[in-house]
Structures are given as structure tokens and as C-alpha cells.
Amino acid sequence: MFFKSSNITARIFDRQICTPAPGTSVHYARKFYENLVPSYTVYEVECPDHSFRKFTDDGQYLISFSRNQQELIVYRPRWLSFSCKDEDCDNHDLPLKAKRFESFFTQLYCVPLASCNELICKDFFLYMESNKFGLFATSTAQVHDAPAVGGAVQGVPSIEKITFHLLRLEDGFVLDEKVFCNDYVNLAHNLGVFLYDDLLTIVSLRYQIIHILQIRDSGNLVHVRAIGEFCREDDELFLNSNAQGMALSDKNKQQQLLGNHIYNNIHQAQPNPGNSFLSGIKQRLLSFMFRGLWNEETDDTLVGFLKLNFGLLFLLPPCILLHFSFACVSDFQALHYLKIT
């Protein structure tokens, strides 16, 4: 907050000669709190044995977790606790209760989030701009040598259960939950989860899928769509139709070469779009990076070199590509190009 003068005498004189607008006298008087600043530091305060995460932007909530990472504890600051009216305040000792944590913060609630085999991810916390809802995460232990089944990427760890909890920060009531099983999401420092307005995106590194959810005003997590192997609604239909057409074309060529001899091959008759096409999200990210570099470069020689060497990115493993892509382009530029916002 900015004001005209930091001189308290000048501000009092200005209050005497100026008349505030109707209905704003209370707010005008409160501006004098700008001249009340902390001037003393209290050391060795008796704090509870918790893991403190952060304040919300408005300073209304202090987020912390229990040491066993099972419970969420939220505090609210009590603001000004002690003051001194004497001139030599530095020589006065504060009362004993000034060295207690409870003198500065009030506990609002304590909510158990994790089950017996789960732990709260203490490095993960997101909240909406209105500070109405907060998002927390719990997960089981990682399995580093998990087999790649069901379309999973080889070499990516697996977590048996990841749960996202949507809470109302005012009273700690759990409004909704979203569970991912046998998946891997990078929860450290919110790297794998992004929140923009009421849209929540969760990046699954194990299955190379971006899950998009919407946080409704009622406190519900609504699944909007998933972008991974298919980006648009008709991608699966198009790829399957193309695979069937290619299989039919190959079969006709074999019949011509063998003198109309029927060559029964089950593997060729089944559509397999994975052999002919990259996944939808990989195509989008590669083309996004290529077009960005293409538009920035003006030298024709370098453009030709770029065309020859950019194909090496198609050989990258999907997990490395997804990490690399989100590091090279801003998150919402990539999401805008994917046409999901």
C-alpha cells in the first residue's frame, strides 16, 4: 500500500485540513496503521513440533503438517500481540508469554488426510486466488522397478496410490478427492500439477497423459478431458480408420505379389496405430517447439540444419521428451497450443 508521506506529523496535519469522501472516514483513519511496523525480534519461541509449509498470499492462513505427515494443521495469525508506549522500548523485556507460539497464532483446525500407508507430500500445496479452496496431496511409497504394463513408460517409477484432497480453507472440510492408482506424478514443489484460475492440470509421467480438471464453486473436482495418446475427440477414430486402411493396403499388395494367394496374418489384420504414428501429445509438443524455432530463425543455412537435426527429438523416450518440452516452453503456452483452454 502506498501513501503520500511517511511523516506521521504531516499525515495528522493532512487529516485535519482534508475531508474524506462520504463513508470512507474509517478507511482513511486506518491508513495510520501503515506507520506501525514491527521493531523487535523474538528468539527461541516455543513452537509445536510441526513441519511449516507457507503462508497464503493474503496472510490469513499458515499451513503446516504433523511430523508423521498424517495430519494437516492450519493456523491464523493474531497480528499485533504486544506493544510498548515508552520511549526506551528496547530496554524493556517482553512478557514470558511473548515467547510462546500460541501468542502469535491461533489453531483453526487439525484434519487427518493420510491413511496408515500414505504420507502427506509436505512440498505440495496449491490454492485458488480467492483463497477459498486448498489442494493437498498424499501418496504411498514409490516403486522404482515397477513393470511397464498398460501403456506405461519403461523406467518411470510407480506409486500405488496418489490422492489429491480439495479442502475448504475456512474450516478444513474435505470437499472432494481425486485418486490416481499405479501412476507417477511429480509432486515436489508442485512440478507436476498446475493451477490456472479454476482449471487444474495433472501431468502423469508414467502414462504420458495430461489430466485436466475443473474446480467448481461447489467444491467438486470435475474431469474435463485427458490429453495423451489422443488429443482431440476424433483422433482415436481417425487413427483406427487409417490403421485399418493401411492394413488393407498391405494385404492387397501381398495378394498381388503372391498371385492372389491368401496370406493369412493375424498381426497384419489388426490395427496398430502405434507403429505408424507418434502419440498425440508427442506430436503436438514437437511441432510446437519446431515452429517456435522456425519462426525465430532467419538464416536459411541454420533453418536447413534445424530441419535435419530436429528429427533426433523423435528418438527421445517419451518421459524425457515431456520433461524437456515443459522446460522449454511455458506451461500455458503449451496448453494453449494443445487447444485445451
Rank of each mutant, 00 (worst) to 15 (best):
L108S: 02
D299R: 08
V26N: 09
N7R: 08
S83V: 09
A146T: 00
F290W: 07
L321H: 12
F55G: 00
N240L: 15
M246C: 08
L335S: 02
E297K: 04
A29R: 07
C181S: 10
G259I: 03
V203H: 15
Q16A: 14
F13I: 14
V174K: 10
Q69R: 14
F13K: 15
D88W: 07
N35F: 14
G219P: 05
E160I: 12
K307V: 13
G228S: 12
D123L: 07
R232N: 12
I17L: 12
D14K: 09
G245I: 05
L286F: 07
Q16C: 14
L322G: 09
F326I: 00
Y196H: 11
L187G: 01
Y263H: 06
E236S: 15
E46N: 13
C319M: 10
Q254M: 15
L36E: 06
Y207I: 03
H211V: 05
L62T: 02
R291S: 11
I227G: 03
F277E: 00
H336P: 00
F13L: 15
R78H: 01
A114T: 02
K307P: 02
H336E: 02
E87K: 13
L335Q: 05
T163F: 05
Q107K: 12
I63E: 01
I212F: 03
H323R: 12
G151L: 01
N7W: 06
P317T: 10
E34I: 04
L205Y: 14
Y263P: 00
L169E: 04
P22I: 11
Y33A: 09
C116G: 06
L322R: 10
R291M: 10
I159H: 10
P147E: 09
F104I: 02
L94I: 03
F324I: 08
N190V: 04
L312Q: 13
G150V: 05
L108I: 03
F238W: 12
